[in-house]
Computed example of a mutant assay.
Amino acid sequence: MPAILALHERFGARGLRVIGVSNFDPDDAEAERKAAEDAAREEKMVYPTYLDTRGEWAKTAGVVDIPAFLVLGPDGRILHRRRGKLTLDAEAFAEMERAIERALPASPR
């Protein structure tokens, strides 16, 4: 989670919106909701997390592995996709930064 929080902090002023998505089984709604709330609190998530009923959004987006990270453009197209853990010191983090740089408008001078 530190890598996502770092991206949120670095690019938020330029328009990056971080949104968490968690699979949700409506047959166990109360427990699922509590687990998502607990995880958000423990991980100090400062961005919204949506509950994805039975993983329907994930299927539509082609997300098959968890965790997964997507960079979407202003039109909603997937511009970058990363599967697996994201850590600050990894090349995958640098790739994510570059993808976000390309997707966002230039910083104001």
Rank of each mutant, 00 (worst) to 15 (best):
H8F: 04
E9S: 13
R10G: 05
F11V: 04
G12Y: 03
R14K: 02
R17F: 01
R17H: 12
V18K: 00
S22N: 15
S22Q: 11
S22K: 04
N23I: 14
N23H: 09
F24H: 13
F24G: 01
D25V: 04
D28L: 12
E30Q: 15
E30C: 02
E30G: 05
E30Y: 07
E30D: 15
E32M: 13
A35Y: 02
A35D: 08
A36S: 12
A36D: 08
E37G: 11
E42M: 10
E43Q: 14
V46R: 13
Y47A: 02
Y47E: 05
T49F: 01
L51R: 12
D52W: 03
T53G: 09
R54C: 04
G55N: 08
G55R: 03
G55P: 07
E56L: 11
E56G: 02
E56D: 14
W57T: 15
K59G: 14
G62H: 04
V63P: 00
V63D: 02
D65A: 14
I66N: 07
P67I: 06
P67F: 05
V71W: 00
V71L: 02
L72G: 08
G73C: 01
G73E: 05
G73V: 04
P74H: 04
D75H: 01
G76D: 07
G76Q: 06
G84P: 01
G84T: 04
K85G: 06
L86H: 03
T87F: 07
L88H: 02
A90W: 01
E95I: 01
